[in-house]
Design a protein around this nucleic acid. Structure first.
Length: 526
RNA sequence: GCGCCCGUGGCUCAACUGGAUAGAGUAUCGGACUUCGGAUCCGACGGUUAUAGGUUCGAAUCCUAUCGGGCGCACCA
């Protein structure tokens, strides 16, 4: 809708302009502060310019009024314009709010180590990534969702060892001495039992079989992770194994050219040339590659696959890692700007105002699956999607269990369900309703209709600015308007029944589409 | 010490990326059901946007400094 308005305005004004929503709806549907920016070059006051521009608008099908107020240029859309758009949307709901953006994007997110189940911090990045994925795809982008599996390095030994220790302790009832660093948690106990029937108990005490056990455990953990993600409605297209990267090592090192150098018997990445604070070791003295080496090959491989852009979503604790990865990409001869790294900040949980207790059972972390079980996937997705991802977030699980307006997901679903109820109570057929023109609407109905039709631009804005929280904000606001409208206006049996129902169908469509993009299914009944 | 992120009513968060009177929810107080789902709605209270300067028609947003918080600062992944 905004695009259509913009293209009309570009013709009339012949100038790029910003179109925004006025703070007060009485000003109109859209507004532009263009007169302010023109003031300098035209050497005239913004008010005068705005007046001139306003009067230059002739009769146009799209606008019912164009007014200049305090330097702003305000536009009121015509009912004809809004009705056509609404009818178009209802005629093919799946098409609503879609766009025809082009471009292949590789979106890498979660990529948690396969050494244990996902915890709550992972969930935020997972929800953020998946929401971007849904938004981007809706807009037409060809996006691949990828998970990078860190199945190499010390942590694999550690996983094998941790499992052996767990088994020795809980299955073999041996007394074991735990090293300083090892993994713990209920999942290891379960894996130990499985491993016992798979391999027999000998594997737990055989130091030569640690890696064999680790390799098996890693696959099992990935299965757990994939299942936990599926419970959140998150699915990946590709999983790339770190261990499989190293066969390309020689080829990639050669491409680094003078981006890498030998010193002290180690191989270093010359990352200081691209803003890193110091150069980084990529191959140790004993010939073992560091984690960064794997990441360099991985990103080389990503870029070789030829996407238009790359988005990585990392936990904020990895921010120090950005410079070296970008540096490596530059040294490999690729455009580091094509890689965009979004950080998702820390999460802390409360329960009844107190810090959420980490369970010993889970290994002193808050498991994502526990929270999903406690508050449900919808509530978790909604709360994470509603907050800017780059701000630390604190929330109370108890408020998300409530079934009233304090819980936004219930509030929105209730709005949607109310509409479905009305539609089922009416004797009118859907085709009749859609065929009714939306004319002579009162102020409330007009405002509600306009807001519902705003969804497409909210989606574009949310994706383009990587600010997914704009969608939940919008849905809350639309729901509030719907509830108020419902309260103020009788629908079934009124003379306006047909018009109002059509209006509500548009609202339901916007709510349904919006929720779907958040990975939440709109409820028809509560 | 250095780097990144952040600081908005008591609390949890928004603010169209520099635009009109900084908005929601929650908490507190007070109202609205013989009416389509009250799981709702309407009021009131509550902010010098951490502080101090600067940039301009215009700043929560940009710049500088200070204070406060989180996270990093591995040849671990």
């Amino acid at each position: 809708m905004k695009q259509r308005v913009l293209s009309i305005l570009r013709e009339s004004i012949a100038q790029e302009l910003v179109l925004e929503k006025p703070r007060d709806r009485s000003f109109g549907h859209y507004a532009t502060p263009i007169a302010f920016s023109l003031a300098k070059e035209l050497r005239k006051s913004p008010m005068v310019i705005a007046d001139e521009l306003a009067s230059s608008f002739g009769k146009d099908d799209a606008f019912s009024a164009v007014e200049a107020v305090k330097g702003y240029l305000n536009f009121r859309l015509s009912e004809k314009f809004l009705d056509e758009y609404a009818t178009w949307a209802l005629s093919d709901p799946k098409r609503f709010a879609r766009a025809d953006r082009e471009g292949k994007i590789l979106l890498e997110f979660v990529s948690a180590n396969p050494t244990g189940p996902l915890h709550i911090g992972h969930a935020r990045g997972a929800v953020y990534g998946d929401t971007l994925l849904r938004l981007g795809r809706h807009l037409g982008y060809d996006i691949t969702a990828e998970y990078y599996v860190n199945d190499a390095g010390n942590q694999m030994d550690l996983l094998g060892l941790s499992l052996q220790l767990e088994a020795m302790s809980s299955l073999l009832k041996m007394s074991v001495e735990y090293p300083e660093k090892y993994y713990r948690g209920e999942y290891l106990k379960e894996l130990a039992i499985e491993a016992k029937s798979e391999f027999g108990v000998e594997i737990f005490t055989d130091q030569d079989r640690t890696l064999e056990l680790a390799s098996w455990a890693k696959d099992r953990v990935m299965e757990i992770i994939i299942k936990d993600l599926a419970d959140l409605n998150i699915h990946f297209d590709t999983f790339v194994s770190e261990a499989s990267m190293y066969e390309k090592w020689d080829e990639v090192v050669a491409k680094l050219k003078d981006g890498a150098y030998k010193s002290d018997g180690k191989l270093w990445l010359c990352s200081t040339t691209h803003g890193d604070e110091k150069d980084r070791v990529i191959v140790r003295e004993d010939g073992r590659a560091t984690y960064l080496a794997g990441d360099i090959i991985y990103h080389h491989e990503k870029f070789m696959r030829g996407y238009d852009s790359y988005i990585n979503i990392w936990g904020a604790d990895h921010h120090g890692y950005m410079a070296r990865v970008k540096s490596a990409i530059s040294h490999l001869g690729f455009d580091a700007n094509a890689l965009e790294i979004e950080l998702s900040q820390m999460v802390s949980l409360l329960k009844d105002g107190e810090p959420y207790k980490m369970s010993k059972r889970a290994g002193n972390v808050i498991l994502m699956s526990d929270i999903v079980q406690e508050i449900g996937s919808d509530a978790l997705r909604f709360i994470f999607a509603s907050k800017k991802s780059d701000t630390a977030l604190e929330f109370d699980v108890e408020t998300l269990k409530k079934q009233d307006s304090s819980n936004p997901i219930y509030y929105i679903n209730y709005a949607h369900a109310r509409i479905q109820t009305l539609l089922s109570k009416s004797d009118m057929k859907p085709e009749e309703i859609v065929a009714t023109p939306l004319v002579d609407l009162n102020e409330d109905a007009d405002a509600l209709l306009f807001e519902a039709l705003l969804l497409p631009e909210v989606i574009e804005d949310a994706f383009d600015s990587r600010a997914v929280q704009k969608l939940p904000e919008y849905l809350k606001s639309l729901s509030a308007r719907l509830h108020k409208f419902y309260y103020d206006h009788r629908i079934i049996g009124s003379v306006d029944e047909a018009r109002y129902l059509k209006l509500l169908m548009v609202v339901a469509l916007a709510l349904h589409t919006g929720l779907e993009l958040l990975g939440i299914e709109a409820k028809d009944r509560m």
